[in-house]
């Protein structure tokens, strides 16, 4: 009786010892040091990519391309920016980048005085090279080293050619643009007009609108009232395409109209897939990111000096519905 009790207690002891040992192991074995992952290798250059439209498919691709290229060339890159074209935040980020004395800034061009002031005065004062990407600001205004991105003039031309091909040599076209009249938008318009000049039968009407949804709708309404026989629409700024199409759709069928836009808005591709847009000008964001970083690194290391101030155009092509993925 007593013996069996003793054996029971002994077994219990063993079990307890086992659990205690396990618990102690868990307590004492676990890493007790702050994970001070040492900085294995100081990156050669600290670059910053700043955009106004973070987390849009277009800029995500630019960022991905830039990061991949930075990784390959041994530079560290961070993607900063603002959401939804918040210019104030965007400019703040740009200023922080300059104050933080990064080695190079790759920035989405913003055709505003504040932007120009920052790049031209402050960045130049600190000796920080700036490359514009996606949308350009003329060099005289921004002192940017170069521009990497689509040739917006050519892009406008491409749209215009597609328009002629689809609509025919005569008709009424409404061009809708952002009232901020940024440089890239002017380039696009210029490209469109230059092509359409050759076709006297094509009547164009250009309207500017603020980029709030209500304003876009109001302007679209107004234009359609003034030009009831409109055949085609071109949203020169991709961000207003969605609201514009919505308004057209409220009035009548969307299909009869030829509607075109660019791909630098998150709405563009879904609208094309739905068949509401007849064509989207596709740019190469990934290449922009890669080329931007590549050129910056090359410039910083002195490999390519000077950079082509006219810019390095990336590929553009017209994306039609049937070609859409």
């Amino acid at each position: 009786m007593r013996k069996s009790l003793l054996i029971l207690i002994g077994a219990l002891c063993a079990v307890l010892l086992y659990f205690t040992a396990q618990s102690a192991d868990r307590v004492f074995r676990s890493e007790r040091q702050l994970p001070r992952t040492p900085v294995e290798q100081q990156a050669r250059y600290r670059l910053v990519l700043i955009t106004q439209e973070l987390e849009t498919p277009f800029w995500d691709k630019v960022a991905a391309g830039a990061k991949a290229e930075a990784l390959a060339s041994g530079a560290a890159i961070e993607v900063w920016g603002s959401y939804g074209k918040d210019q104030e935040d965007f400019l703040k980020k740009l200023e922080i980048a300059i104050d933080a004395k990064v080695d190079g800034i790759i920035v989405q061009g913003l055709d505003s005085d504040a932007f120009k002031n920052l790049t031209k005065v402050k960045a130049a004062f600190y000796g920080i090279p700036v490359i514009t990407v996606g949308s350009d600001v003329p060099m005289v205004d921004s002192l940017r080293r170069t521009y990497v991105g689509s040739d917006q003039y050519a892009a406008g031309g491409l749209i215009a050619k597609q328009l002629i091909a689809d609509m025919g040599k005569s008709g009424t076209v409404i061009l809708l643009g952002d009232s901020r009249e940024e440089y890239y938008q002017q380039q696009r318009l210029k490209g469109i007009y230059d092509i359409l000049k050759a076709y006297p039968g094509v009547k164009t009407a250009y309207a500017e609108t603020a980029d709030t949804r209500e304003q876009v709708i109001a302007t679209t309404q107004d234009m359609m009232n003034r030009l009831p026989d409109v055949d085609a629409f071109v949203a020169v700024n991709a961000n207003i395409a969605a609201a514009m199409i919505h308004e057209i759709g409220r009035r009548s069928q969307v299909e009869p109209y030829d509607i075109y836009s660019f791909d630098d808005s998150p709405d563009s591709l879904p609208l094309l897939e739905q068949g509401k847009l007849d064509g989207v000008l596709e740019q190469s964001p990934d290449k922009m990111g890669r080329a931007g970083v590549n050129l910056m690194v090359k410039w910083l290391s002195g490999e390519v000096m000077p950079l082509n101030t006219d810019g390095y155009p990336t590929e553009i092509k017209m994306l039609k519905l049937k070609e859409a993925p």
């Binding site: 294995e40 990156a43 104050d99 933080a100």
Partner: peptide, 20 residues
């Protein structure tokens, strides 16, 4: 305070202080 995760940020941070 440098580590792999905040290396970039710390560099910026220090440069900001310098700028200040």
């Amino acid at each position: 305070l440098r580590n792999a995760d905040n290396d970039f940020a710390i560099a910026n941070y220090m440069n900001l202080i310098d700028s200040l």
